[in-house]
Nucleic acid binder design. Structure first.
Length: 300
DNA sequence: GTAGGGATGGTCT
DNA sequence: GACCATCCCTACA
């Protein structure tokens, strides 16, 4: 049996377990053996202990922002996914990309093109757009203000439910592969969909009102406000000419969960900050820079 | 740690 | 039929 076939068998087995639990409980559920992992204190986040019972959820007003503004506003916010048994998976957003639609040729909605697949991009701000890519992966976007505009969620910092995330991610990996570190659970657009069990059927759901997935402000820290946001060209769209160069990927400088670092962009934004601090003109205009208060060492 | 190559099937032209 | 907003594994430094 090839490695690929082994993976498919493992995936099928994991899916079967979900079905078994669904039948036993009369409702969709996370596998029981996964639920028990939740109580493992040693596996809890090193970064953050979530508060409970607080009204932290972001409503529809939050999503009514221009695409680039929203992409930056997402940084530091917490994506929450509930399992049928009430277990919650949490991850802090540390990397996003803005796709503006219209003239943005790298966007699925470029030129106002509307298809069955990208319908969610044209729905009200806060609508989830889930699409398959490369035949075997999914990516999750959230629509923003603007015709056909949406923000791609690229990376999360796992905060809660890491054992479950690890199980979900392991289902697609080779048997006997080394265990994933926390920072490797959600450091890519498709990885975060796997780790939070975001299925294709979440497409067109409303992030502001859905009972199974939502966005929260961080109850403990104002990470994004106190961190430095790096603006870099978007990933994987090299074929789109000048649009590939637009610095519309945003991530928290030095964060270990970012999928791909762009050292050139980091240097440029840092030198721009120094110039700015010296009283120069707006070198980094429009790149959303903030004060530098953290280093990569603080995250490790 | 990083670079290179292969896998994969839905979507669009 | 070509493309693709990715991921994983392996080899090598």
């Amino acid at each position: 049996m090839t490695g690929r076939k082994r993976k498919m068998v493992a995936l099928t087995a994991a899916a079967s377990k979900l079905d078994v639990n669904k039948r036993e409980n009369g409702k969709e559920s996370t596998p029981k053996k996964l639920i028990h992992c939740e109580s493992d204190e040693a596996e809890q986040s090193r970064y953050f202990t979530p508060k409970t019972g607080e009204q932290l959820r972001l409503g529809e007003e939050f999503f009514k922002q221009p695409c680039i503004t929203l992409a930056k506003a997402f940084l530091g916010k917490v994506l929450v996914r509930t399992c049928a048994d009430g277990t919650e998976l949490r991850g802090r957003i540390v990397e996003t990309e803005a796709y503006l639609g219209g003239e943005d040729k790298a966007s699925h909605s470029a030129g106002g093109k509307r298809t069955e697949r990208n319908t969610a991009m044209f729905m009200k701000p806060g609508t989830i757009y889930v699409y398959p890519i490369y035949g075997m992966y999914l990516c999750m976007n959230v629509s923003s203000e603007g015709e056909g505009a949406a923000v791609l969620l690229r990376s999360l910092e796992p905060l809660q439910g890491q054992p479950i995330m690890r199980q979900l991610r392991a289902a697609r990996r080779k048997e006997g592969a080394p265990q994933l570190k926390d920072k490797e659970l959600c450091n890519g657009p498709s990885k975060l969909c796997q780790a939070l069990n975001i299925p294709r059927c979440f497409d067109r759901r409303d992030l502001a009102s859905d009972p199974e997935v939502w966005l929260e402000r961080d109850s403990k820290s104002d990470l994004a406000q106190n961190s430095d946001i790096v603006s870099a060209p978007r990933v994987g769209i090299e074929s789109h000419g000048e649009w590939a160069k637009k610095p519309w990927r945003f991530y928290l400088r030095g964060h270990p969960c970012v999928s791909i670092r762009n050292k050139e962009a980091e240097r440029e934004s840092l030198s721009g900050k120094v110039m700015s601090n010296l009283g120069s003109s707006d070198v980094q205009s429009g790149t959303g820079q903030h004060n530098v208060t953290r280093t990569s060492q603080e995250y490790n």
